[in-house]
Design a protein around this nucleic acid. Structure first.
Lengths: 350, 350
DNA sequence: TTGAAAGCGCTACCAG
DNA sequence: CTGGTAGCGCTTTCAA
């Protein structure tokens, strides 16, 4: 009768029936005791006997069966561009901490900024029954995101945001941060300030660009389109953009750089041109590595509170996953921090 | 009859039965066509009709049901100390790339180097029915790992290895790498070489220590226990260890540093002591950030081929997951790369 | 070649 | 208060 199952040794776990047999009771009763709320009608004696046997057998409910039955997996999907980017691995880590505490698992998917992959992954994760989704979207389109919202599927966007559709989101104060950084550079005496922006279409980039422009206008700085270079988020694109901007006839004296991999590429370009920081060129970078302050010239950075972002995102998601009726959307904006280091030349004391 | 299920909009996917009904055939037939091997006995006409309807309805097999039935989830678990450590996020990324291609999902868990958490997580992932496990173990104990092997559960260790038990593993040539680095420093004229080793008990650390000692002996360098500081893998422990070693009566002229977060901590200590690299102290670091070459003094590093490690680990795991009989274990050793930069002072030309 | 039925382990509902 | 039963969607075996 007893079959040799689980050839690979998985699932040698006892089942409800095993407990029921030992106690001499029906499996459904065991289920009620083990899973049911405190208020379910069972004799205290029964409870104790079942609980005892369950502990003795070291019973763990079969997750696969539960997930199948309940259509709940206690798993959330995280879709990000690239986990090996420190910005996103920081976010992933903080989400994992929160999800671990709430007894959820985290499935991590990387899009490489490819819209097709993202759509595939959303689909796949839904089919696998994740209970919720946290996404830093590619932002080439949003129909698939919109559909999730229409179905009231628990979803939180992180870092990036669609201004055309309403969703939950945890984002940072990009516009303000860019404005403040450029304003600081202006007050320090810079007139030509370049912006290596990263991939366009992305919410963060658009917001930073707005902040940049506003500061340019407010401080009457050189407003020259050739000072802005949109490109990818990779080291190489940062390198190329920077090289290009520094090779123009009137290169900037300061650079706002939008992303940590881009910053590394920018440094590469700057050194290749034999320029020195900050004497020839001042730089401020969005998001930092942990080692920013140990760079050739310690780098001024605009830092995101990654732990806070991840925690907020997960907790927001959790509320939506646990609620049985649709909740109103929340948009949480976290504050970045501007750290000034030696990478900025000040013509005037600021 | 038709219930309003899926209140949150999940699982609006058609089932085998939906297809069967449309085609006017039994669900099991549909299953045979859709899942079965090519050789199964079905009329070609039937095949085509079913395939057509399946495509029309955009049928996707319900992953939860399949997983439950088959006890296979197409998911592998990755257990690492900390995804926000660039070393491990690099490994995680390369594993994810390989698993994506093989149509597997990846669940990432962080232990924070806590043995209890690791054991918990192994358990939980087994209960959730992962098909295989890749682990960078904490290495305070190995009984749980051993049990997995006894059950023939598909498992690959990565970066770390137990010399007392046989397992699959993808590791790097730590001993040789340490030996080579210290030998280089010796040939450059250093006699007192310190080693900030990281957490002891860890395979990588033990191997590096052996390589370090061998080089010390071979080149007749100062063999002083106070030159070695074992500690954690955090920035702070690197900071403290370095501070301690540099504060001894006869501090070393060169330092081998075992980990990237530790390196950052070491730098902090060095700068705090107002020492300059490489004039006062030379450094070589195990594993690098992408930005190592842009540090105050570009850092000499021993680099791991993370993409190769992750890919090898996943492919090895895949072979074991796909085989129905136990396979012999493989131990794959990858080569590190020693990159010499300005952080080393050479008393003699090397 | 196809249909029918059983069953994975669990939960939920309805009787008693 | 407890037992029985049905069923989630799929695969697999056996019978037709």
């Amino acid at each position: 009768m007893k079959q040799v199952k689980n050839i690979k040794g998985v699932n040698m776990f006892p089942t409800l029936k095993d407990i029921a047999d030992r106690v001499g009771v029906h499996p459904s009763t065991v289920s009620r005791v083990l899973r049911g709320k405190e208020t379910l009608p069972v004799t205290e004696e029964m409870r104790q006997r079942i609980l005892a046997v369950a502990k003795e057998l070291n019973y763990q409910p079969n997750h696969l069966a539960r997930a199948f039955r309940l259509k709940k997996t206690q798993t959330v999907g995280l879709i990000i561009p690239d986990i090996s980017n420190p910005f996103f691995s920081g976010i992933a880590r903080s989400i994992e901490i929160a999800s671990y505490q709430a007894d959820y698992n985290l499935v991590v998917c990387n899009t490489d900024e490819e819209q097709v992959k993202e759509i595939q992954m959303v689909n796949m994760l839904l089919n696998r029954g994740v209970d919720g989704l946290i996404i830093a979207p590619v932002q080439d389109c949003y129909q698939h995101i919109q559909k999730l919202c229409e179905r009231n599927f628990p979803l939180v966007l992180i870092d990036r945001y669609f201004k055309d559709i309403e969703t939950n989101a945890v984002i940072s104060d990009n516009e303000e941060a860019a404005f403040n950084a450029v304003s600081f550079l202006a007050r320090a005496g810079h007139h030509r300030i370049g912006f290596i922006s990263g991939r366009k279409n992305i919410y963060t980039i658009i917001a930073r660009l707005i902040g940049y422009k506003k500061a340019i206008n407010k401080h009457h700085l050189d407003d020259d389109p050739s000072l802005v270079s949109e490109n990818g988020f990779t080291l190489d694109s940062g390198y190329k953009s920077t090289l290009q901007i520094l090779s123009t006839r009137y290169p900037p004296t300061a650079l706002l750089i939008s992303g940590n991999l881009i910053s590394v590429g920018a440094l590469k370009a700057i050194f290749e041109k034999k320029l020195s920081i900050p004497d020839d060129i001042s730089i401020v970078g969005f998001t930092d590595f942990i080692c920013s302050e140990y760079w050739v010239t310690p780098m001024s950075t605009i830092t995101h509170p990654l732990p806070e972002m991840g925690e907020q995102a997960f907790n927001l998601l959790l509320r939506h996953m646990q609620s049985d009726k649709p909740l109103p959307y929340s948009k949480i904006v976290v504050k970045t921090k501007f750290t000034i280091r030696e990478s900025i030349k000040t013509f005037y004391p600021v």
